[in-house]
Simulated scan of single mutants.
Amino acid sequence: MAPPSSTSDVLLYFLALFVPPLAVFLKRGCIADFWINICLTILGWLPGVIHAWYIISRHE
């Protein structure tokens, strides 16, 4: 069972609805996850949001 989300994670989930790559960048930095999210967001907004939420939920 995952621990409850912190306040900063809740804000990142909200930010991911509008600018998914920025939320991933703030969570993980400029690594592969960020570039994957940019590509997914270019392909469609929804895949970018889903990936961002996945990254936010999986990484501390």
Rank of each mutant, 00 (worst) to 15 (best):
M1P: 11
A2P: 13
A2H: 14
A2T: 14
P3I: 11
P4L: 13
P4R: 11
S5P: 13
S6A: 09
T7Y: 08
T7R: 07
T7M: 12
S8D: 15
S8H: 14
L11K: 11
L11F: 15
L12D: 03
L12F: 13
L12Y: 08
L12S: 06
Y13P: 03
F14M: 12
L15H: 11
A16K: 03
L17K: 09
V19Q: 06
V19G: 01
V19R: 01
P20E: 04
P20A: 12
P21N: 08
P21G: 07
L22M: 13
L22I: 14
V24C: 05
L26N: 05
K27N: 05
R28S: 09
G29Q: 09
I31A: 05
I31N: 05
A32M: 10
A32L: 14
F34A: 02
F34T: 06
W35G: 05
W35A: 08
W35C: 04
I36Q: 01
N37H: 05
N37L: 02
N37P: 04
I38L: 10
C39I: 14
C39N: 03
L40V: 07
L40F: 12
T41H: 06
I42K: 01
G44T: 12
L46N: 01
L46R: 04
P47L: 01
P47W: 02
V49D: 01
V49K: 01
V49E: 02
H51I: 08
A52M: 08
Y54C: 03
I55K: 04
I56Q: 04
I56T: 05
